[in-house]
């Protein structure tokens, strides 16, 4: 049997614990996120873990594909320390400002250039954007099937079994490779960073590809290749602000209880 080739699409995102520091410049309409540490988007880390566990159980290789600004290299290094074998870093100004469509187009082109892996893993949503669109869109650009929102996975007899979350409950699906899956957090508990793996990762290869390497023109990529464009930002009027209740905890608790009671007696609830 041919050895299993697995790819994981990773996004580097500002640490969600510090999202309150992300702001928008109302003039330039650009998002400011400088100085916030970057992490592997949390669900992508579950995707990586799923891929690495599959490799550990069935053999094969795991390659990471990541599109991002130069700062993302650190997260790619981290992914290599977490069990990936090599990585492709799509780094080019032409990729900047991409929406899900342009992102998926670039990632799909890279995956095609890699010789279409049998299995491709993504997080069900990336943090920050959280559209959940990129995974299904990559599958379309590659012309392969996909399962979205997978919470349990098994691979046997050359087939993938995936339990997916649906609008009516859960469905156990079966699929032939090649397949793309997007994973939810329930699928596994990602391993922690080990020092020995971090050191081994130094020797692993990171290929850096530009738009030219993908054979895509600049109008298919980045902001220009995006399907949606933000053209305005409307700030909300400053909210009025709460009336702050003063007093000791007991008094305040009593006041809240009274407010709720009064509100309920108003017959509204």
């Amino acid at each position: 049997m041919k050895s299993l080739k697995i790819a994981v699409c990773l996004k580097s995102v500002p640490d969600p614990k510090q999202w309150h520091k992300v702001t928008i410049n109302p003039q330039t309409k650009t998002i400011q996120k400088e100085g916030i540490p970057r992490i592997i988007s949390p669900l992508d880390r579950h995707a990586l873990e799923a891929a690495v566990r599959l490799k550990e159980a069935h053999g094969g290789s795991v390659i990471v594909v990541c599109m991002g600004s130069p700062g993302a290299r650190e997260n790619i290094q981290e992914a290599l320390a977490l069990g990936a074998d090599e990585a492709v870093f799509l780094s080019d100004r032409a990729f900047g400002g991409a929406d899900s469509l342009a992102t998926a187009r670039a990632l799909a082109a890279a995956l095609k250039k890699l010789g279409l892996p049998g299995l491709i893993f993504c997080g069900a949503v990336s943090y920050y954007g959280s559209t959940g669109q990129v995974g299904p869109q990559i599958a379309q650009f590659l012309g392969i099937n996909h399962f979205s929102a997978v919470r349990f996975l098994d691979y046997k007899g050359g087939k993938l079994y995936a339990e997916i979350v649906t609008d009516g409950g859960f469905a156990l699906c079966e699929g032939k490779l090649p397949l793309l899956v997007t994973v939810r957090r329930e699928i596994n508990k990602p391993r922690g960073l080990r020092l020995s793996e971090a050191i081994k990762a130094r020797k692993k290869k990171i290929w850096t590809w530009s738009s030219a390497d993908l054979g895509l023109s600049s109008d298919q990529l980045g902001l220009k290749g995006s399907g949606i464009q933000m053209f305005d930002f409307l700030p909300l009027p400053e909210a009025q602000g709460a009336e702050i209740l003063e007093g000791g905890p007991q008094e305040i608790a009593k006041e809240i209880a009274q407010k709720i009671k009064k509100y309920r007696q108003g017959g509204i609830l």
Partner: peptide, 11 residues
Amino acid sequence: AFGGHCVFRSQ
């Protein structure tokens, strides 16, 4: 987003 609304157009 960001204490207001981003306005988008799709192509």
